[in-house]
Simulated assay, not measured.
Amino acid sequence: MEMLQIAGTVPEDRLPVQEIFGPVPQGEGPYTGRRACFIRLGRCNLHCPPCDSKRTWDTSRYDLAQTCPPRTAEDIVEAAGEHGAGAGIVVISGGEPLLWQRTTAWHRMLTALPGDVHVETNGTISPNEFTTGRIAHFSVSPKIGRMGAADPAKRRIRPAVLADFAVLAGQGKAAFKFVTADAADVEEAARLVRDHQIPHDRVWIMPLGDESAAWTAAGRDIVAQVMDHGFNFSGRLHLTLGVR
Rank of each mutant, 00 (worst) to 15 (best):
E78L: 13
P114R: 05
A181C: 11
A105G: 11
F178H: 09
E120K: 07
R55I: 03
P127E: 04
S139W: 06
E120R: 00
G145Q: 10
M147H: 15
T72S: 15
L64M: 11
A174E: 07
L98I: 03
E129I: 12
R155N: 13
F138M: 06
A79T: 15
W100L: 02
A163E: 15
G115E: 07
R158K: 14
V161C: 11
T72W: 06
F165V: 07
I125M: 07
M109D: 04
G81E: 01
V161L: 05
T131F: 04
P159D: 14
T67C: 00
K143G: 12
P152E: 10
D182T: 05
T124A: 06
V77Q: 06
T132V: 11
K177T: 11
A73P: 08
W100I: 01
H137V: 01
A65K: 14
S60N: 13
A136Y: 04
D116L: 12
L110Q: 03
A174M: 07
A136F: 03
T132Y: 00
V90G: 01
F138D: 01
T103A: 10
R55P: 00
A181M: 12
H83N: 14
R156L: 09
S141I: 10
T132L: 12
A112W: 08
F138Y: 11
Y62V: 03
P127W: 10
H118Y: 15
W100D: 01
R55V: 13
E120I: 11
P69E: 10
A87H: 15
P70F: 01
M109R: 06
G123W: 09
V140T: 05
S93F: 02
